[in-house]
Design a protein around this nucleic acid. Structure first.
Lengths: 77, 77
DNA sequence: AGTCAGTGGGGTAATTAGGGAG
DNA sequence: CCTGTCCTAATTACCCCACTGA
């Protein structure tokens, strides 16, 4: 396991995700998530130790923006 | 879980946070917050019994300083 | 007096950061 | 241009038990 369970008790639903969790959501390597943060494509919060945390809301929004639905119906349905 | 909510009305300007509460803000383990205090990365106040408390204003400031917003637009959006 | 979540201290595994080469 | 992997070092997470604090 990585950490504690999700917190229902945060500021304003400001849950944070670890690089590994974000990597799982996008099905990529955690290293890639780090590069996104370095490139400024996704906001990040650094711990005093240097590790990164990501806003869950931002990650979800990003996922939604990059999601494309099928526009043509299946011909054999 | 680490931080519960039972809380005394800490009136006055300076509200104090428990290690568990600070840990929640940074999405880390309460033990990690303790190490930050030991390493001098964050100021702490010790109770006569040895437990630590952190200044909310200092924590918030630190959190804000370590926060980076996304600057580059998403390619596929 | 007694309960009990939270904390401290110590020690060991798991993640992460960073650079670099493919 | 972007990503996954290898490496080392640093940071963090989870385990124990004893004590604090409300």
């Amino acid at each position: 396991m990585t950490a504690t369970v999700p917190h229902p008790r945060q500021h304003a639903g400001e849950r944070l995700l670890t690089p590994g969790e974000v990597a799982t959501l996008f099905r990529v390597d955690p290293k890639t998530v780090t590069r996104w943060a370095t490139a400024g494509r996704i906001g990040s919060i650094r711990t005093p130790g240097g590790h990164r945390r990501f806003r869950e809301s931002e990650v979800k929004t990003l996922l939604a923006e990059l999601t494309t639905e099928a526009t043509e119906p299946v011909r054999n349905a």
